[in-house]
Simulated scan of single mutants.
Amino acid sequence: MGKLYVVGIGPGGLQHMTVRARQVIEESEVIVGYTKYIDFIAPLIENKEVFSTGMMKEEERCREALRLSKDKIVSIISTGDAGIYGMAGLVLELIENEQVEIVPGVTASSAAASILGAPIMHDSCNISLSDLMTPYELIKKRVEAAAQADFVITLYNPKSKGRPHYLKENIETIKKYRNGNTPVAVVKNALREGQEYEIFTLDSFDDSNVDMLSVVLIGNSQSFVKNGVFITPRGYKL
């Protein structure tokens, strides 16, 4: 009898995987994933069967993982958390009677926040600017609603060659509801090789180094920078 694990491997550095994620990957006979993400865990899967594809093949990977899991132990991996822009939802939509366990991981907003300080100590939301799955008009509506409600906002998939202007447009929307000195941070390759970050304000924000390996965090009306650290206060009386 097989089993399928849907595993969030965290930001990509092996030391930031959960103990459970490592356990199930070691237990698995087959690993399924996007080629680049497979590379992140290469030291853990040297003697395992691997099924990998390039981008835009998510359904193919999920169907193959479900097929293989009928008589093998399989892990299908996502970076970050499997249930946040990962494979968990699609697997569960496709499932029939297979045994499935979701294994959570550290999502990009949490990874980036740990580098910056404590920017998401209060209410926050994640919004992807990719319009491959969601109409751009709906994305803009969500950004405006989050800005108006004073959420700390983390923008995933903030900028690509095919949509170079979305980030600037949505920053302009957020500026309608936030002061110009509101902190904005760009974190690239959070907690993995090539990590770098910059902290701006809404008024000084520069998106020239932002790409699909980045996340952008925008503070709420109470956020500030102290000694180079990005903080959103929880509201404790000091």
Rank of each mutant, 00 (worst) to 15 (best):
residue 65 A to C: 13
residue 17 M to Y: 00
residue 207 D to L: 12
residue 173 T to F: 12
residue 203 D to N: 15
residue 190 A to E: 12
residue 111 A to D: 03
residue 134 T to I: 07
residue 119 P to T: 04
residue 90 L to A: 08
residue 146 A to I: 02
residue 94 L to V: 07
residue 47 N to W: 11
residue 18 T to N: 00
residue 237 K to I: 13
residue 234 R to L: 12
residue 155 L to I: 07
residue 149 A to P: 07
residue 45 I to A: 05
residue 206 D to C: 15
residue 55 M to Y: 10
residue 126 N to M: 12
residue 161 K to C: 07
residue 132 L to D: 00
residue 28 S to I: 00
residue 161 K to S: 09
residue 143 V to G: 06
residue 163 R to D: 13
residue 74 V to A: 08
residue 180 G to Y: 13
residue 221 S to I: 08
residue 171 I to V: 13
residue 86 G to K: 04
residue 93 E to S: 14
residue 104 P to N: 04
residue 233 P to F: 11
residue 36 K to G: 06
residue 230 F to Q: 03
residue 110 S to D: 11
residue 49 E to G: 10
residue 113 A to K: 04
residue 154 T to A: 12
residue 194 G to M: 11
residue 113 A to I: 01
residue 39 D to N: 13
residue 221 S to E: 08
residue 203 D to M: 14
residue 102 I to E: 00
residue 148 Q to D: 07
residue 90 L to T: 06
residue 74 V to E: 02
residue 26 E to G: 06
residue 133 M to H: 13
residue 131 D to A: 08
residue 225 V to A: 09
residue 99 Q to E: 15
residue 20 R to K: 05
residue 160 S to P: 05
residue 114 S to W: 06
residue 75 S to G: 01
residue 82 A to K: 03
residue 209 N to R: 15
residue 28 S to Q: 02
residue 160 S to C: 08
residue 219 G to W: 03
residue 163 R to S: 14
residue 54 G to H: 04
residue 201 T to Y: 11
residue 227 N to S: 14
residue 179 N to Q: 15
residue 21 A to S: 00
residue 193 E to Q: 14
residue 81 D to M: 03
residue 115 I to C: 09
residue 34 Y to M: 08
residue 143 V to D: 04
residue 153 I to S: 03
residue 149 A to H: 10
residue 76 I to T: 07
residue 95 I to W: 05
residue 174 I to G: 09
residue 209 N to H: 15
residue 32 V to H: 00
residue 120 I to F: 05
residue 113 A to G: 06
residue 212 M to D: 06
residue 16 H to R: 06
residue 25 I to L: 01
residue 141 K to V: 05
residue 84 I to Y: 03
residue 185 A to Y: 07
residue 54 G to S: 04
residue 162 G to L: 07
residue 54 G to F: 02
residue 207 D to F: 09
residue 181 N to Q: 15
residue 185 A to C: 11
residue 99 Q to V: 14
residue 174 I to K: 07
residue 69 S to R: 02
residue 163 R to V: 12
residue 148 Q to K: 12
residue 129 L to T: 04
residue 17 M to C: 01
residue 9 I to R: 00
residue 232 T to E: 11
residue 64 E to F: 12
residue 111 A to Q: 01
residue 208 S to C: 13
residue 39 D to W: 04
residue 162 G to T: 05
residue 52 S to T: 09
residue 97 N to L: 11
residue 129 L to Q: 04
residue 66 L to A: 10
residue 141 K to G: 09
residue 45 I to C: 06
residue 53 T to I: 10
residue 72 K to V: 04
residue 86 G to D: 00
residue 71 D to F: 08
residue 89 G to K: 12
residue 8 G to V: 01
residue 60 E to P: 09
residue 190 A to V: 11
residue 20 R to Q: 02
residue 208 S to Q: 12
residue 122 H to Y: 11
residue 107 T to N: 06
residue 66 L to N: 06
residue 150 D to Y: 04
residue 190 A to K: 09
residue 28 S to W: 01
residue 22 R to T: 00
residue 111 A to K: 02
residue 45 I to E: 03
residue 38 I to F: 02
residue 149 A to W: 06
residue 229 V to H: 03
